[in-house]
Design a protein around this nucleic acid. Structure first.
Lengths: 243, 243
DNA sequence: CGGAATGTTGATATGCCTCAACTAAAGTGG
DNA sequence: CCACTTTAGTTGAGGCATATCAACATTCCG
C-alpha cells in the first residue's frame, strides 16, 4: 500500500464517497516520485505535460508571469491536491507550477488516468469535482483580491490556508506550514511587500493570527474568521452525494 | 433541429472535435427555454439546482455577494456557454447567476446530462474541458484585478469579452454587445464607478476602444491588445485533440 | 411631470505604492 | 573562521492613484 495512493484517496474523500472498486482502481495507478527543491519550477507556462501531479509533501503553487518577471500567484496546493489536473484536457499550460519550500510530488501518466476513468467513470467524476472546487477557490480569490481591504484580505487568505490544511490533517495546535515569504504573500494578494508587512503587523496586534518563519499560527480562529469575512462554504467540504 | 443544440455544439466545437455519435447524443437532450428579464437572478448562492443552463441569447453573469449587498462579478457568459455546469458535481451554489440585459437560457435536467455522459464519455470530457477553460478565465481575472493598473485592467477585460464574442460569432464590424453599466464594470474589476468612468475616458482618448450604451466598439484591436497586455492563449481556443 | 438610474465632473481624503535606509539572518568563498 | 554577499524583514517619508463625497446632467420610465 503506497502513501501516494492513500494521500490521493484521503483528499478525494473530502468531497466524494468512493466505493471499494474505486479504491482498488486508484491503488492500481502507477507513478514516479519527484523531489522538488525550494522554489523549483516543475511545470512551465507553454508546456504540454503528459503526466499529472499529486502533491505528497510540502506545498506547490500555480502562478502567472506578467511583464518583467512579475508574478501573480494563483493558488497553493498541499498533500493530496492535483494542481495540474487541467492538463488532462488542455494541451498547453497557461500558467506555471513551482515548489513553495521543499516539496515532493508523484507523477502519474495521463494515459493511466484516462484508462482508470474508462473503467470507473465515478472516479472521473470525483476528479472533475476536484477541478470544480479549484475553480471555486479561484473565484473566491477574485473577490478577495478585488474587493477586500488589505487586512481583511490577508486574514481571508490565512483562513483558507488554515482551513484546508486542517481538512488535510496538516494542522496542529492551531498552526500549519505556509512557507511563503512576505514578497510572495504580496504577489498572491496583489499588494506590495511593504503593505503586506504592515498588514501582518496589524493582524498580529489583533491577537488573531501570526505568520512568521513559514508558519501560520492561529491564536483565535473565530476572530480571524470575522476579520477575514471568511465563510468556508466555497470550499465545498461537505461530502457530495455519490453519482 | 433546435437552435439550442446547435448553439451548444458550436460552442463545444471551439475546443473539442465531436464525432457524429456525439452530435446525435447532444441533439437528444431535452430542455426548457426560459426568458430572463434584465438583471433577473435565476440561480442564487445556496441553491442546489437540478438543471443546468445553456445561454442561448444575451448575456448572463456569475457573482459573489459580499457584505451589505456589495457585488463582485466573476464572469460573463454568452450564447453556448454553460455558466453553472459546476452544479452537476457541487450540490450547493457558492455564487449567484443573473441576466445582464435581457437574456434567454435553456434548462437541461442534470439527469439527462449524466445519462448522456454514460453513453458518450467523450461528451463528458468535452464538458469537463469547458469547465476547465472557465477556471483558466477565473485565473486570468485574478491576475487582471490584482496586478494591472486601471487602464490596462479595463482594456484587458474588453479584449477578453470581444475575443470571446468573436469566437462565438457575435462580433460584427469591430463591435459586440456588452450590456454592462459602469457600476457593474467597477464591480467586475474591483474599482469604483468614478475610476471606471475616468478609465473609460482615457481609453477612448487612445482611440483603441469605446464603450457606451452597452456596446463595445473596438477601433484598433492591436492597440487595445497592447494596452491590455492581452494574450489570448488562456482562452485555449485552439481545438484540442480528441480523447 | 416626477423619480430613479446612469453617467459625468470636481474636490478632498486616504490607502497603498515607491523609494530608501537599515537590521538580521543565512549562505558563500577566500 | 571570518569578511562578503544575498535575501528577507522592518521602518520612515513622500507621492500618487484611487476611493469617497457631492453636485449636476441626462435618459428612461412610471
Amino acid at each position: 500500500m503506497s502513501s501516494v495512493h492513500d494521500t490521493l484517496i484521503r483528499k478525494i474523500r473530502e468531497h466524494t464517497s468512493l466505493s471499494r472498486d474505486d479504491l482498488e482502481a486508484i491503488r492500481k495507478l502507477t507513478f514516479v516520485n519527484r523531489l522538488l527543491a525550494s522554489g523549483e519550477d516543475f511545470v512551465r507556462q507553454g508546456d504540454a505535460p503528459r503526466v499529472s501531479v499529486v502533491v505528497t509533501r510540502g506545498m506547490v503553487a500555480r502562478y502567472h508571469t506578467r511583464t518583467a518577471g512579475r508574478r501573480q500567484y494563483l493558488s497553493f496546493h498541499i498533500a493530496g491536491d492535483m494542481p495540474d489536473a487541467q492538463a488532462l484536457f488542455l494541451d498547453v499550460m497557461d500558467h506555471s507550477l513551482c515548489a513553495i519550500g521543499e516539496a515532493e510530488v508523484a507523477l502519474l501518466p495521463h494515459k493511466d488516468i484516462f484508462d482508470m476513468f474508462e473503467r470507473r467513470l465515478s472516479i472521473g467524476y470525483a476528479f472533475w469535482r476536484e477541478t470544480l472546487i479549484d475553480a471555486a477557490i479561484f473565484r473566491e480569490a477574485i473577490t478577495n483580491n478585488s474587493s477586500r481591504p488589505v487586512r481583511t484580505r490577508i486574514a481571508h487568505f490565512f483562513c483558507e490556508q488554515y482551513y484546508r490544511a486542517q481538512a488535510a490533517g496538516l494542522a496542529e495546535a492551531g498552526s500549519c506550514a505556509l512557507p511563503l515569504s512576505q514578497i510572495q504573500l504580496g504577489e498572491t494578494l496583489g499588494i506590495s511587500v511593504v503593505t503586506a508587512n504592515r498588514g501582518l503587523q496589524a493582524l498580529r496586534r489583533t491577537g488573531a493570527v501570526e505568520f512568521r518563519d513559514g508558519v501560520l499560527l492561529v491564536r483565535n480562529w473565530k476572530k480571524l474568521m470575522q476579520i477575514g469575512e471568511f465563510n468556508a462554504s466555497y470550499l465545498h467540504l461537505i461530502k457530495q452525494s455519490r453519482i
